[in-house]
C-alpha cells in the first residue's frame, strides 16, 4: 500500500487515517514502535536509524514485520 509521509512518524499517522486501529497494534501508548514489531526503511531497521524520525525518501519501500520469536 502507499502512504503519504516523509518520516516513519508521519507514515504511522497516515496508516491510522487509512486503517483506524492499526496504530495501537504497532505502537506503544507512548507512540514508540512496539518491541516485537520491526520497521525497516529499505533494508535497515529504524531502531538503528533515527527511530520514528527516520526519513523516508520518496518511493522507498517500508516493511513492518512482527519479530517472530524462535531459536533454541
Amino acid at each position: 500500500m502507499t502512504v503519504d509521509a516523509s518520516t516513519v512518524r508521519e507514515m504511522v499517522a497516515d496508516l491510522e487515517r487509512q486503517h483506524p486501529g492499526i496504530r495501537d497494534r504497532i505502537c506503544e501508548e507512548s507512540g514508540e514502535i512496539r518491541r516485537f514489531v520491526n520497521v525497516f526503511v529499505g533494508d535497515e531497521d529504524i531502531r538503528f536509524l533515527q527511530g520514528l524520525d527516520t526519513q523516508i525518501p520518496p518511493g522507498t519501500q517500508v516493511s513492518i514485520i512482527p519479530a517472530v520469536a524462535g531459536g533454541r
Binding site: 497494534r25 512496539r34 518491541r35 514489531v37 519479530a67 520469536a69
Partner: peptide, 21 residues
C-alpha cells in the same frame, strides 16, 4: 510478556495483538 493479554494453554507462542512472546 509485553502487553499482558491472557490466552488459554494452546500451541501458540506469539501475542496476536502486539506480537510479543
Amino acid at each position: 510478556r509485553e502487553c499482558g493479554r491472557e490466552y488459554p494453554a494452546e500451541p501458540i507462542h506469539v501475542c496476536e495483538y502486539c506480537f510479543a512472546p
